[in-house]
Each structure stands twice: as structure tokens, then as C-alpha cells.
Design a protein around this nucleic acid. Structure first.
Length: 254
DNA sequence: ATGGCTTGAGTGTCAAGA
């Protein structure tokens, strides 16, 4: 099973890019973040025509997540207890015996901002939710845009980003709650060196100099990790006309 | 450089992203 996550920064603005990528890579499960539309505005028919089942949890203008899968999506849940404050950001479903939890973590704006406090609260509530999901579904993947780096290996300029948003100690501690609950950062099981990122700033043209951050993650339970054969950040998808500012992350599971 | 770029909303310019 090929499992993927991609913050597409508007599915309607990115439709040709995402459709072309799906045709090329044929992921079995694709989790999307920042679809930025209502459920009824999602280009469902275009993906169904490619053989995908589609579940969405959207809202007007901001946020919004979706799961596409080549097998039926069962036990679909939208949001979680304690997560309403952040908007439409978490969508879960079971596919092929794997519990898939698709998350778009609150950005937080800047350290100390009220949205930063919301981010930390929201992540704590999500950790509690995922712990419950893990009890019921030992084979689980929590994946998406976490808006947090694990450590300085995930940062192109650790001095410049020191204790800044996406890199602060409290955010990293909140991220560590997921690993403490038994989930593993699949990427680091395979890639031990730095310089591998999933997001690059539009404004500074960060992609040109690979000035990026690794903030999109695929976390796997021990049972799911046992079948993990490889990981990839598809930087090719960050190139070309009108790309998202994020690249997709893929994992191969047996 | 509270900037630079991109999107959505809505038709002038701001909010939000990370």
C-alpha cells in the first residue's frame, strides 16, 4: 500500500497538479490538507473518475482535509473532542485494515500569539484523541501537516529559526506526545541526515536554495511500522507551474 | 524590512499561511 500526505494549499487552485500527480503516482491512500473549500465544492467527480473513494471535511476559505482511497473508506469520523476551536482539520477513516488519521495542525502564527496557545491546546487534545484511536486500532497512521519540526535536523537555518514558530520547544514537546504514545516518525527510520524538507516559503523563493522545513509527517504505530518498506518526499511535485508550497510525503507499507 | 508570495473573498484590499 502506498500511503501519501500533501498540503495542497487549495484543491481548486491545484486541481490539474494534484490530478496529474495522482495519475502518475497512483497512491492507494492520499490525505490532503488545506483544501480551502466546502464539501460540495470539492472536485469529487474528477478523483472518482480515477477510481478513488472520496471523503472530505471542508469549510469555507480556510483549512479543510480530505482522504482519497482506491478501496472503500470505512468508519469515517470528522473532527475530534476538543478540536472544534481550530476548524475543519482532522478526518479519519479505516482502509485496508489501516486506521488513517489525517491532520492539519493549527499554524500558531507566532510564539506567544493567542493562536500559538490554541495550537498547543489543540495538539494536546489531538494526542488524547489519537491515544484512544490507538487502543481501538493498533495498526494506525497519523499523517499530515503538523506545522512543527521534530528537531534542528528538520530546519535549514536552525540559528535563524531558534525558538521561532514551527521550531519552538513547547511545539516540539507537543509533537513528542505523539511519539510518546507509541507512534514513530517513519521518515527518520530511513533517512538520518538533514537537508530534507517538505515546505519552502513562497515569499523568499526558498525552494530555489532548498531553504525549507520538514513539517509534514507520517507517524506510524509499531504494528504499521513493521510493514513500512520505504519513505519519500516527492520534491518534483514542488516544481513547475503554480505549485503548492508543500511537497507530498509518501510511505510504502506491505 | 511585520517585507518578499499565494489564495480566497469579492471588486478594494485584507486575512492567513509558515
Amino acid at each position: 500500500m502506498l500511503l501519501a500526505t500533501w498540503n495542497v494549499n487549495s484543491i481548486r487552485a491545484r486541481l490539474p497538479k494534484v490530478l496529474g500527480w495522482v495519475q502518475k503516482r497512483r497512491p492507494d491512500v492520499l490525505c490532503l490538507q488545506e483544501i480551502k473549500c466546502l464539501d460540495e465544492q470539492f472536485p469529487r467527480a474528477e478523483f472518482e473518475a480515477e477510481g478513488y473513494a472520496v471523503e472530505t471535511f471542508g469549510q469555507k476559505t480556510y483549512n479543510g482535509v480530505a482522504i482519497l482511497a482506491r478501496e472503500p473508506l470505512a468508519d469515517v469520523t470528522r473532527g475530534f473532542t476538543g478540536g472544534d476551536e481550530g476548524g475543519a482539520r482532522v478526518l479519519a477513516a479505516t482502509v485496508g485494515g489501516l486506521r488513517v488519521v489525517n491532520a492539519y495542525v493549527v499554524n500558531g502564527k507566532e510564539v506567544g500569539h493567542e493562536k500559538y496557545a490554541l495550537k498547543l491546546r489543540w495538539m494536546e487534545a489531538l494526542a488524547a484523541h489519537v491515544a484512544l484511536e490507538l487502543q481501538r486500532h493498533p495498526r494506525l497512521a497519523l499523517l499530515g501537516d503538523f506545522n512543527v519540526t521534530f528537531d534542528d535536523l528538520d530546519v535549514y537555518d536552525p540559528v535563524g529559526w531558534h525558538e521561532q514558530i514551527l521550531c519552538s520547544t513547547p511545539e516540539r514537546q507537543a509533537l513528542a506526545r505523539f511519539t510518546a504514545a507509541g507512534l514513530v516518525d517513519s521518515y527518520r527510520q530511513f533517512v538520518k541526515d538533514g537537508g530534507h524538507y517538505t515546505w519552502w516559503d513562497f515569499r523568499t523563493r526558498g525552494f530555489l536554495g532548498n531553504r525549507g522545513l520538514r513539517i509534514d509527517h507520517v507517524l506510524l504505530s509499531a504494528e504499521a511500522l513493521r510493514g513500512c518498506e520505504g519513505v519519500e518526499i516527492d520534491v518534483e511535485a514542488r516544481k513547475g507551474e503554480a505549485p503548492s508550497d508543500h511537497a507530498p510525503v509518501l510511505v510504502r507499507l506491505s
